[in-house]
Simulated scan of single mutants.
Amino acid sequence: MTASSDSFLVIEPAQLRFKGPFKDEVSSSSLKITNHSDKAITFKIKTTAPKRYCVRPNQGILNPGASTNIAVMLQPFTYDPAEKNKHKFMVQTMFLPEGEHSDLETLWKNASPEQVMTSNKMRCVFEQPADVPEESPLRPPEPGDIKKVTEEVKHLREEISSVMSENQQLMEEATRLRRQLASGDVASVAPLPPTTAPADPMMYYVLALVLLCCGVLIGRVVM
């Protein structure tokens, strides 16, 4: 078990506050750490969300009684209220061995668990501007939603199939009539009813587009 550095390390403030909006701008906060021991220490800043933050400096050396300021920059991201309690920071410290003042990476890599001391975790607080409401998580799809969209797509497919079949019959009839006219058998040619014109090809495109949109909608609902 690692020891706590709270007895000699002072960290201010106790929470890191970041002000939004967070989607398009970098939000900054800062830490101040002070070494109240009588020995030089090395420190390292750690977070539960390393891809979201840029910390400068993220490690260094503090002599007895010395302080340093740490800049913490939150990179732009799509804010999710459910994530706000998952971001935390902590400071790890270790007494600096005699003569070890240069290669901190190697020092931390070779440190034993007994040497490393850890501070209490600091919670991150996200403050949205008054005119920017918190985004609500997406509502999970209801079973009825999927069923309704599926039935609509089925109905559209049946309509497309029916129109295509009717159009095919009309085209065959028109071809037969043209052949009769060409052969001179005019007497046997019956007048076409008002509805015997082939369906407009644009109807296919419209129905196909509607069907495609419904298919995409089903995909989104299922996901």
Rank of each mutant, 00 (worst) to 15 (best):
A40G: 15
L217H: 13
R176L: 13
K109A: 15
P129I: 11
M117Q: 05
V206W: 11
M94H: 04
T118E: 11
C124P: 01
T106M: 10
A3L: 05
E158K: 13
I45C: 04
K109Q: 14
G20I: 01
T48D: 12
K84W: 06
K148D: 06
D131Q: 07
K32E: 09
I160Y: 04
M73K: 14
V221H: 08
V132G: 08
G20N: 04
V26T: 10
L9H: 11
A66Q: 15
E105M: 08
A187F: 13
I61G: 02
G60M: 00
V149Q: 13
S29T: 06
A199R: 12
E98A: 15
E159Q: 13
P57D: 09
S102W: 10
C54A: 12
R176C: 08
P129R: 05
R139T: 09
T195E: 09
K147C: 06
Q15A: 12
F126I: 02
T68I: 15
S67Y: 09
M94R: 11
R56D: 11
M94C: 07
G215F: 06
Y204F: 13
D80Y: 07
S29M: 02
E114I: 06
L212D: 11
P21Q: 06
P50L: 07
N69S: 13
E98D: 13
A208Y: 02
A3R: 01
K121D: 07
A182I: 10
P137L: 06
A187K: 14
P141L: 05
E159V: 03
D103K: 06
S162R: 15
K109R: 14
E127F: 07
V91P: 00
T68A: 07
F126L: 00
Y53W: 05
P194K: 00
R220V: 15
D80Q: 14
S27T: 02
D200A: 02
I160W: 03
V91E: 04
V116C: 00
T47C: 00
S30W: 09
M117S: 03
Q75G: 01
A182H: 13
A208M: 05
E12H: 08
V216R: 07
